[in-house]
Nucleic acid binder design. Structure first.
Length: 293
DNA sequence: TCACGTCAAGCAGAT
DNA sequence: ATCTGCTTGACGTGA
């Protein structure tokens, strides 16, 4: 079991998600920002290794506007060695990697334009992981998408579009239950047709569920991950007290987290903590795990 | 240096 | 019809 946090580290003094406005696009600007982002990513990974944080979500902003028409620059070639070096650091230290494209990636969109742009964006994400030479245990997680007033039809549309994807994307793509539309059971249905692994978001599940038996549900979810996919990834968070349902907590509640671990039992999953103070909570959780033996 | 209006992209739910 | 959250967002202009 590995513990991780998403994208941003507030202790290292840099961010790997520096970007710029579209109107300021130029190959020079792109090169400068990507260079800084990659350097910061490297620094962040070193911090993580030192603190026994061996699961990390790489920001989608690593290469700004990569899937946009404006981006004609061959950043893949220009930064090939940098990506490779980071990939080596990841592999040497057995770090698990995920990425989570933004909410605009809607594979089951009704508008073709949105589907096309979504696939371009997924291609960008898969290229990042490919350039790092990571195997298919490195995953790209997305939500099922919109409901459009007809959930069944929208799920079928997802299944249809998924079938058309290139293997570069398919081998990395996993779907995550969300807090409003698609529950874990909905994701399992799609998985049963497509074979796509289901990433269980425990926090979303607490808000959006069908009162399934948790043990049974988690067992089914974990079995959607084949050996080559690596251990199941899961997202964990807890509610920010006194705030609207769905808001992520500022720091980890170790008692609540322990309860979650109890539910998991002897299941080997990698846990992404979606908690606002990022690496600080991840370090606490990793220490808790270590002390539990 | 800082505040705040604005930024590629979509959806659902609240108001 | 318009606003907000999503991931406590980031940029960059104007003061």
């Amino acid at each position: 079991m590995k513990i991780g946090y998403p994208c941003i580290n507030n202790s290292v003094g840099c961010k790997s998600s520096r970007t710029f406005r579209l109107r300021n696009y130029s190959p020079e600007n792109l090169k400068e920002k990507v260079k800084g982002n990659l350097r910061c990513l490297h620094k962040t990974l070193l911090f993580n290794i030192k603190n026994n944080i061996l699961f990390f979500r790489i920001t989608s902003d690593l290469v700004p506007f990569a899937s946009h028409n404006v981006c004609s620059y061959n950043w893949q070639k220009h930064f090939r060695e940098d990506f490779k070096r980071i990939g080596e650091l990841i592999k040497e230290n057995k770090i698990r990697i995920s990425m989570h494209p933004d909410q605009f990636v809607i594979l089951n969109a009704k508008k073709e334009k949105i589907r096309i742009n979504s696939i371009k964006e997924l291609r960008y994400h898969s290229q990042i992981l490919d350039l790092m030479n990571l195997d298919q245990r490195a995953k790209i997680q997305i939500h099922v998408g919109g409901v459009y007033g007809d959930k069944k039809a929208s799920m079928e549309r997802f299944i249809k579009v998924y079938a058309t994807l290139n293997n570069e994307i398919k081998r990395r793509l996993v779907i995550e239950n969300d807090e409003k539309s698609y529950s874990a059971s909905d994701c399992l249905y799609i998985s049963s047709i497509t074979g796509i692994p289901v990433l269980f978001d425990f926090f979303h599940h607490r808000i959006n569920n069908l009162d399934e038996d948790k043990g049974e549900l988690i067992k089914k979810i974990v079995s959607t991950w084949r050996k080559k996919d690596g251990p199941a990834m899961m997202d964990y968070s807890s509610q920010l007290h006194g705030e609207r349902s769905g808001r992520h907590a500022n720091q980890i509640d170790l008692n609540d987290f322990s309860e979650f671990l109890k539910i998991l039992g002897d299941i080997d999953a990698d846990i992404m903590l979606e908690i606002k103070d990022k690496e600080k909570s991840a370090i606490k959780a990793a220490k808790l795990l270590k002390n539990n033996g």
